[in-house]
């Protein structure tokens, strides 16, 4: 068992993070919220970096990478609260289409010309899809009531849940950072509020939750990539751990910001609302808890002293 990422994986993540940190700050989210949520220039930049083709095989014009790399990039998308449907199209739909042997749209996806919205029976609404528009609590999320009924394919569900979990890690990281920075500059009673244990201990608890959620998500990505039979259990664990970490951090970050955290003007709410939307998608906590308890009690996770962790 080795949780280290390869040099190539780290370079990829760093380059995407650098790009986003230079071009996709909170001012972009505020602009999109006013101007209509989608910006072709942002999408084109994602295409130019090769991200739409990240998981598309090289023969179809992509980079041919796997789910671990996709999850790492999904976390970066969460970190900047990216609104474009990159994760759904490139990290959920592409691996699913490949698994089904449907390759005809892959090159169009890699070139950025084709976006895929995937309805699933667990998701009554679909983001960036056709159908009657709905208002989401996440102001940057273009939801639609999908006209046809969705798939009930488990692999699709697992891919969606895994990638939501990965995005939630980045969202949680970003919210924690915003709250920490605020606690350093906001002074009351003659000192930064972050000097009070009542504040700093809460943020420390968030850091614990986020750091322990990360390896669980990477483990789930590797399990799916390797086609382990236990992958669905890993995915459910990842979805719950990342959801809990993100919600705790969202709620704590608002509290730490005081009344400012409750305003639309402070950027935090974009991350919080995205977290809320992603936590609900591809199976909520209750759904994934049921999969876990069924695995623990139903024997698909072997128990007893002769078995070790897998």
């Amino acid at each position: 068992m080795d949780f280290r990422f390869s040099e190539d994986q780290l370079v990829l993540v760093e380059s995407v993070r650098d790009y986003f940190s230079g071009t996709h700050g909170p001012e972009v989210l505020r602009r999109l919220d006013v101007d209509g949520n989608r910006d072709p220039a942002i999408w084109q930049a994602l295409v130019d970096m090769g991200l739409t083709g990240l998981c598309v095989p090289e023969a179809h014009g992509g980079l041919g990478m796997g789910l671990v790399e996709a999850a790492l990039i999904a976390a970066e998308c969460g970190r900047v609260c990216l609104a474009e449907p990159l994760v759904d199209t490139a990290f959920v739909a592409v691996p699913w289409l490949i698994a089904k042997g449907e390759t005809d749209k892959l090159s169009a996806i890699a070139s950025g010309d084709h976006k895929v919205a995937l309805p699933h029976v667990l998701n009554p609404w679909v983001a960036d899809g056709e159908g009657k528009p709905q208002t989401s609590v996440d102001p940057l999320r273009n939801l639609a009531m999908f006209p046809a009924s969705g798939s009930n394919d488990d692999r699709l569900l697992n891919l969606g849940a895994l990638m939501n979990a990965a995005q939630l890690l980045g969202l949680a990281d970003a919210m924690l950072e915003q709250a920490v920075e605020y606690a350093k500059i906001r002074t009351q009673f003659g000192q930064p509020v972050g000097a009070f244990q009542g504040i700093k201990h809460q943020l420390a608890s968030c850091a614990v939750a986020v750091e322990f959620a990360k390896p669980v998500v990477w483990r789930a990505a590797a399990a799916m990539q390797d086609g382990l039979e236990t992958a669905p259990v890993h995915v459910s664990h990842a979805k719950i751990a990342a959801s809990d970490a993100a919600m705790l951090t969202a709620e704590t970050a608002i509290q730490v910001h005081g009344a400012m955290g409750y305003t639309y003007e402070v950027d935090l709410h974009f991350w919080m609302k995205r977290s809320w939307a992603l936590v609900g998608g591809w199976g909520d906590r209750s759904y994934h808890y049921k999969r876990l308890d069924a695995a623990v009690l139903g024997g698909s996770i072997p128990i007893g002293p002769e078995h070790t962790f897998a």
Partner: peptide
């Protein structure tokens, strides 16, 4: 409030209203 959202599930985060 958190319980309400867990009970409503995704329906709690979506509205038919065009306005927020």
């Amino acid at each position: 409030g958190e319980l309400a959202m867990d009970v409503l599930g995704q329906a709690g985060e979506v509205t038919d209203n065009a306005d927020y």
